[in-house]
């Protein structure tokens, strides 16, 4: 994987991660969804579409997609997709920093495995 595409993928991940945090903040601000029936899901979708933070999140999704597509232009999908799992790592670190979610050894261990796997895939 060329460094240029790795950089584009990282930009994709930054937008993707920011998107996740913004969406999570937006959703946290809504009333807690029940998800007991499909109707609950539809009500939830209606609620999220009315929240301004969600729309900011959607803009970030668009940006994340554009960078993802530029990666796909030059990299095999079977490489880009696994390397994209670095997003788990980025989301976890940002959840810790911005959403004050707790960190534990299982999470850190999982992250180590993901990074090791990504290194294997990216170097293949």
């Amino acid at each position: 994987m060329k460094p240029k595409y790795f950089l584009l993928l990282i930009i994709h991940e930054i937008f993707g991660t920011a998107e996740q945090v913004i969406l999570k903040k937006g959703i946290n601000g809504l009333e807690k969804p029940k998800f007991k029936s499909f109707k609950d899901c539809l009500i939830f979708v209606r609620n999220i579409l009315m929240a301004p933070l969600i729309w900011l999140g959607l803009l970030f999704i668009l940006a994340a997609w554009i960078f993802w597509f530029t990666v796909l232009a030059g990299v095999d999908l079977s490489v880009a997709m696994p390397v994209d799992s670095l997003q788990y790592v980025a989301v976890m670190i940002s959840s810790y920093l911005f959403l004050h979610e707790r960190m534990n050894w299982k999470k850190i261990g999982g992250v180590m495995f993901i990074i090791a796997g990504v290194i294997l895939v990216a170097s293949s």
Binding site: D76, K107, G110, F113, G117, S124
Partner: peptide, 29 residues
């Protein structure tokens, strides 16, 4: 897409899946 998925790539993917499994179990705990 006729991509050539090498053994190293498969190995890396397997390791990633183990990582995702660990991360998701920590959340449930």
């Amino acid at each position: 897409l006729h991509e050539n998925v090498t053994l190293t790539r498969w190995l890396g993917i397997l390791v990633i899946c183990v990582g995702i499994y660990l991360v998701s179990q920590s959340t449930s705990h």
